[in-house]
Amino acid sequence: MRLFVCLLALGGVALFLLGLQLELKSLCLLSKPLPMIALLLWLRSAPPSAYRRWIGSGLLLSLVGDLLLEWPADLFVFGLGAFLLAHLAYLVAYLGACRRPAPFALLLAGLVAGGMFALLASAGLGALLLPVAVYSLAIGCMLWRALARLGTAGSARSNWLAAGGALLFVLSDSLIGLNRFVAPFEGARYAIILSYWLGQWGIAASVLALQPSRPRPAAATVLPASPRP
């Protein structure tokens, strides 16, 4: 099963990048969901929990957003809505894992999300000003709660994977905004999709990292032979 999931993800990545290179929109549309489907299948190997359920919901919503953004018609606003719900699902997952205030993490997330929104707004968003403002608030909150997990009790590996995945997801969203509203740049789609997939992998991997390690079998105790009477 793991081999199939790995091949599905890598095959989807390779086909999508090939579609970008050859400008084959149909190939991009068909291959883009494959890595996310692979992550959803991989997630099923983790024990059931509220954290897994919310992360799985976020991955599924992201899959819907992928299709909406890649669709030939301009469905950007609907894709934005799907990813907004995905960020909210991740936010709920992270809140369930940690609820400490973490003011430094809040400041950092606020600077990242607020700074990006200010830059996009200065470029002129028109009717999208309010939707982008709400979206920026959501990703800022999601990033805050992901960073708040760092240094807390529990699985340090899971915490770092969640925080790293959230940062990469925010980076991907920021690159979309810069490329669409500020200044298109060469290689944007490659940078956007690769940071997005790596971010989603980190978020999904944070669920698997919570699995308790198997206890090592206790060494057999050898009792000294009792002396014969």
Rank of each mutant, 00 (worst) to 15 (best):
W201Y: 15
K25H: 14
V182Q: 06
R100W: 13
L63H: 10
L68G: 12
P229I: 11
G58H: 08
M142K: 12
A218Q: 14
A138F: 08
A188T: 00
G165C: 06
A209R: 04
D74T: 01
S136G: 12
L27S: 12
S26T: 14
L107Y: 07
F117P: 00
E186N: 06
L210F: 03
E186L: 13
N179T: 05
V170H: 07
G140I: 09
A97S: 15
L8Q: 03
P224I: 10
G114D: 07
W197E: 06
P103S: 06
A73M: 12
Y135T: 05
W42I: 01
P212Q: 15
L120H: 07
S226E: 15
F16L: 13
F185Y: 09
S226K: 15
L85S: 11
R149W: 09
A204H: 02
G65D: 09
G79R: 08
L137H: 00
R157D: 04
S213F: 12
L129D: 04
G115S: 00
Q21M: 10
L88S: 08
L95E: 11
G81Y: 08
A163W: 02
A118L: 06
I37M: 11
S26D: 15
R189M: 15
K32P: 08
Y51R: 06
L91D: 13
P33W: 01
G56P: 11
V112F: 10
R189F: 14
P103G: 11
M36I: 15
L22Q: 12
L29Y: 13
P131H: 01
L175M: 12
L18Y: 07
V134W: 05
A133H: 00
G79N: 09
G177W: 04
F169P: 02
R228M: 15
M1P: 09
L41D: 03
A89G: 10
V182F: 09
S31F: 01
S206T: 01
A191P: 08
G19C: 03
L20C: 03
P48D: 05
A73R: 15
L61T: 10
L198G: 11
S57Y: 11
V13Y: 10
I37G: 07
C141K: 13
A220H: 15
A38D: 06
D66P: 09
L10Q: 07
L107H: 04
R214F: 11
V132Q: 00
V112H: 02
Y90I: 04
A93W: 02
A148G: 14
L111H: 07
F117G: 02
V170E: 04
A123D: 04
L63M: 14
A220N: 13
Q211E: 15
N159V: 11
F181S: 00
G115V: 05
P212R: 14
W144I: 03
V132M: 10
S136M: 00
A166Q: 08
A225V: 15
R228K: 14
R99S: 15
S45R: 14
L108H: 06
E23T: 10
R145V: 02
Q200I: 14
S206V: 06
A118S: 09
R216P: 09
L85Q: 12
S62Q: 08
A46E: 11
L27F: 11
G19K: 04
L106T: 12
C98T: 13
P47V: 05
A225M: 14
D66Y: 07
A138G: 12
